[in-house]
Design a protein around this nucleic acid. Structure first.
Length: 547
RNA sequence: GCGCCCAUAGCUCAGUUGGAUAGAGCAGCAGCCUUCUAAGCUGCGGGCCGCAGGUUCGAAUCCUGCUGGGCGCGCCA
């Protein structure tokens, strides 16, 4: 927000120097001390075109700038940067503006009037969520929050398939355990069956509650019954886990509805009309090579069943037809191969795939005491997301899964995550929040209340100015994190913010300072509290008022 | 073999879309509480930004080729 105090004047003085700039002027924040508060490279970018030396052009622009009470100094530096040093008055004005935003600090209207749909989690009901699912859950939900904070109307969607081979295998796995529970020990467990404890658990509950029913059923009926019981149990488990993580979907979309509404068949025919479908070896193929993809793929098997690709295309078409301005998919790296096929299909049907944004997060490895923790979904000794939450807590789970860029492999350090002390980055943020709350409460006890009209011009300490400077960047950080689908940016920002606050707290006595200074510092602390609170809300972690 | 992702301090990772002398946490060492929460703060040491070219005023960042690791490449999802 700093740049708006200088941008138009700079634009006019650039024009006076013969340089017309369309669009926003690019600004950067210098890293080094003594390089001002804001820096622009416009002179270097355009010097060549104007046939001037960068430093000469920069100086001409600077000379044309009118004097302003808000600007303490403007200088040409290095190869041709224009560095602007603001007077403290700019920071006082920014703090005043931030305070006026009340509880909406960080909120943006970037997406106001726009709609978005985000699909995440989307695990089929074949078992409880495992620890690795956590990244998808946390990344998806945090991105959803980011869009909401940017003004979008957000629909959180969970896509699932309760038919097909995997579900049949779930039913058979339970069925076999059930037979064992009923004394038929010679029924063999299927080769690729599910081994989790929950299989036996569901089987035993059927054995105790529905034994007579089962004995009266044919094998097919019993298998279907087991499958349904398994699905019910798995969904209850998944939803309970998501509840613990404070994740709530607006829509549970069953793949099956795409068949009921005829959208799957319609999709095949629409592709066929465009000459992109052919029959071979008894199967129906999608001619992806005609669309520039490396190989054609089967979309309807010779058995007559579609492969996952076809309903996926129909599903994306459905979402786009629902009119969302933005459609976001959150996938793990193991699903990366499906993305180009689905997008090509949707595009071939005439939809604008620019509206679709796909977030692909890399895999997670869990580490404890320097050792990689191995686990497998079907090995029996699975590591569920519930186990992880029990070990380290929901806040830590959410934070750890989003604190690294989605494109990089994530190492989840269980030892670090379990620490409740100073090494754990979540507590560092929450502690800053709790510390501010504590001061505000202590102030109330002493009769010192928040004064929104406080004279802010007394804030001149470097720690105070640094803190305001950081706060002024919160909103643009939220916007950038949303536009780039990068939740970790918020975690980084909050760490900086907490650090800046701790520095301020350490060097600047609040309660007991001279009356005008006390009021101003208290206001600064409260604005920081609201920013930190909103940041933690975006991440979906708790905002404790005492620790 | 092909596609996507990654490679930065001892370890885990940032790096504001191409800017100035590459940053943080942890680990190590040394300091700071009779005063608003020491779950905090301060200082020190630590680097061939995987390698080699290219693009330009300027590259950790963009392009090409290597090396090493991850994930995929099914009439499974």
């Amino acid at each position: 927000m700093m740049q708006r105090y200088i941008e138009e004047e700079l634009r006019r003085s650039a024009e006076a120097a013969g340089l017309v700039i369309d669009g926003p002027i690019p600004f950067g924040v210098p890293k080094q001390e003594g390089q001002g508060h804001l820096s622009t490279n416009i002179a270097m970018m355009h010097a060549k075109r104007l046939g001037k030396q960068p430093r000469v052009l920069a100086q001409e622009i600077v000379d044309a700038l009118p004097a302003s009470a808000l600007v303490a100094a403007v200088e040409v530096a290095g190869p041709g940067f224009i560095n602007v040093t603001f007077s403290d008055a700019v920071y006082h004005a920014m703090l005043r503006d931030l305070d006026a935003m009340a509880d909406d600090i960080g909120r943006s209207d970037l997406g106001i009037g726009r709609t978005m749909n985000i699909e995440y989690v989307s695990a089929n009901p074949t078992g409880p969520l495992h620890a690795g699912h956590g990244r998808n859950c946390a990344v998806g939900d945090t991105i959803a929050n980011l869009f909401a904070w940017n003004g979008y109307a957000v629909t959180r969607e969970y896509y699932f398939n309760n038919a097909g081979n995997q579900m049949n295998m779930l039913g058979r796995s339970i069925y076999v355990r059930l037979q064992h529970a009923l004394g038929n020990l010679d029924v063999p467990f299927p080769e690729d069956g599910y081994h989790g404890e929950y299989i036996s658990h569901v089987a035993e509950s059927i054995a105790t509650e529905h034994a007579d029913q089962i004995r009266a059923m044919s094998e097919d009926e019993a298998l279907a019954f087991c499958r349904k019981q398994g699905e019910t149990w798995c969904f209850a488990s998944i939803r309970q886990t998501l509840e613990t993580l404070n994740i709530h979907h607006d829509v549970y979309f069953n793949e099956d509805t795409l068949y009921g509404t005829g959208k799957v068949v319609a999709t095949v025919e629409a592709l066929r009309d465009r000459g992109l479908v052919y029959e071979k070896d008894g199967a129906t193929w999608f001619a992806l090579t005609q669309l520039g993809n490396p190989q054609d793929k089967v979309i309807v098997k010779s058995t007559g069943e579609p492969t996952y690709r076809l309903p996926d295309i129909a599903y994306h078409r459905d979402k786009l037809e629902r009119g969302y301005d933005v459609v976001v998919d959150v996938f793990g790296a193991d699903h990366i191969a499906t993305v180009p096929d689905v997008l090509a299909g949707v595009k071939a049907l005439g939809f604008d795939t620019d509206r679709v944004r796909v977030v692909i997060h890399q895999m997670v490895t869990f580490v404890e005491d320097g050792e990689v923790v191995k686990f497998s979904k079907r090995s029996g000794k699975s590591f569920t997301l519930d186990d992880l939450i029990d070990e380290v807590g929901a806040d830590v789970v959410r934070f750890f899964f989003i604190m690294r860029a989605v494109g990089t492999h994530l190492e989840f350090d269980l030892g670090l995550a379990k620490e409740e002390g100073d090494r754990n980055p979540v507590f560092y943020l929450q502690y800053a929040h709790a510390r501010i709350c504590s001061i505000l409460n202590k102030g109330l006890e002493r009769g010192v209340t928040l004064d929104h009209g406080a004279d802010l011009s007394v804030l001149i300490h470097p720690r105070e100015i640094e803190l305001v400077a950081l706060l002024s960047r919160f909103r643009s950080t939220v916007e950038r994190a949303c536009e780039n689908l990068e939740p970790h940016v918020i975690a980084e920002f909050l760490r900086d913010l907490a650090g800046a606050y701790h520095n301020f707290y350490h060097d600047c006595r609040i309660l007991g300072a001279e009356p005008p200074l006390e009021s101003a510092r208290l206001l600064l602390a409260d604005v920081t509290r609201r920013a930190m609170r909103n940041g933690l809300l975006i991440l979906g972690v708790g905002t404790p008022e005492r620790m």
